[in-house]
Design a protein around this nucleic acid. Structure first.
Lengths: 216, 216
DNA sequence: CGATTGTTTGAGGCCAGTCAAAGTTAGTGG
DNA sequence: CCACTAACTTTGACTGGCCTCAAACAATCG
């Protein structure tokens, strides 16, 4: 992308105010106006099922983009909630769509983003339908490790931004099962678990358990 | 969309030759060049996991569009296979992307398509992580019923285009469980099952079991 | 510091998976 | 057209992994 193009994109980006833990970035049913890039912190997205249950559909760490679900009908189907104090950039979609008519690479870039989201969701579907509790937890830990590494943070030592409840919900497991798996991993020398602080001790074995099916 | 725009879109659509049952439309790893619209028949998409297992990620009936997974990196991550003799239209993406720069509504239309795919995948994720075998099977039957109805076919009487094995794979169940659930549904007066021919007898109760969480 | 929320651990039950075998369908070639 | 084979489906008996229920413990917050 050319420098002047980047400038034009930057012009439409708005720095949002910080979100406190538990605060909504947008709610299911809100009119879709923008996509968001996480600047710092972590956001989870959830769906509410017809019987009122909550389903966690994704965790978005710093640098990642969320909100693409709203394009279909100009309404968000997800809700997005901060898991900790977070800062996000808002990218108004109308200007973006207009702008991407002038900058072909930008359009292509956005198609790619959505396509990645589809691929990621499908990897998760596979995990939910085929993998054991151990495999699911190991895969999530590796995913967070990889994404931290991309941000030049430690791949072996990190803090889980989400609760056991969110993990279980996301992975299709109960909180008790998540807790038991983490305890067992620690007992077997794979991890050191201190509440939300995780240290990966035996990365090879963890990858082995996760079936090396890295998703991100 | 204006008439001349529709003409321009139609110009780039190619009618593909018919696919025989079991034939591949594209394979994982193929260079991405086109998306496809199912004209008749049914296509399934599958992912191959790192340990060689197959995961069915979607069924595409007549009128539905597939192949959007390839946009991310210009390579298909899925493979697409005909479940019965089928005909598809090929829509070359390069021309489409170019064209959508000239026709803003077309770009928007494509964003919507991808967004719908994301929403659909997330509904499926929710089902895989929360719902019982009965709920999953009921939901799939209702989905096919709804999509048939949209094509002005019977919503109560239809033929499943896919095998028990594909259903089980897609829903995260074994073939034995799928078979047992269908037998039980028949025994309880919800359905009439004759091999792949399904007649929905008690639509209300079926919706009840599916939790009315219609996905499509 | 009490109250609330989140986490861990244990005991027991159940749903779906596994294993097995018989029955059914579809496809092939003589 | 039919015999033969391979693939698919159904049904049953049993097993096991995860869920449910329950209680104790830890952390967070006003």
């Amino acid at each position: 992308m050319h420098a002047e193009d980047i400038d034009r994109v930057n012009d439409i980006i708005q720095r949002g105010r910080p979100l406190q833990k538990g605060e909504y970035l947008y709610r299911s049913g809100d009119v879709f106006q923008s996509v968001f890039k996480v600047h710092s912190g972590t956001i989870k997205t959830i769906n509410i099922t017809s019987d009122g249950q909550e389903q966690v559909t994704g965790f978005y760490l710093a640098g990642e983009i969320l909100g693409l679900d709203g394009l279909a009908d100009n309404v968000h189907t997800n809700s997005a909630i901060a898991l900790e104090t977070s800062a996000v950039c808002e990218i108004p979609f109308s200007s973006l769509e207009e702008l991407s008519l002038k900058i072909p690479t930008l359009q292509h870039h956005f198609f790619q983003l959505m396509s990645r989201e589809i691929i990621g969701d499908q990897k998760l579907m596979t995990m939910l339908s085929k993998n054991s509790a151990d495999e699911r937890v190991a895969t999530l830990l590796l995913s967070i490790s990889t994404r931290n590494h991309r941000r030049h943070l430690s791949a072996l030592d990190f803090r889980l931004p989400m609760s056991r409840s969110d993990i279980g919900n996301y992975l299709g497991l109960t909180i008790e099962t998540v807790s038991r798996v983490l305890s067992r991993f620690q007992k077997n020398g794979l991890l050191s678990v201190d509440k939300k602080d995780i240290t990966i001790v035996d990365m090879d074995e963890l990858k082995n358990i996760a079936n090396a099916d890295t998703y991100e």
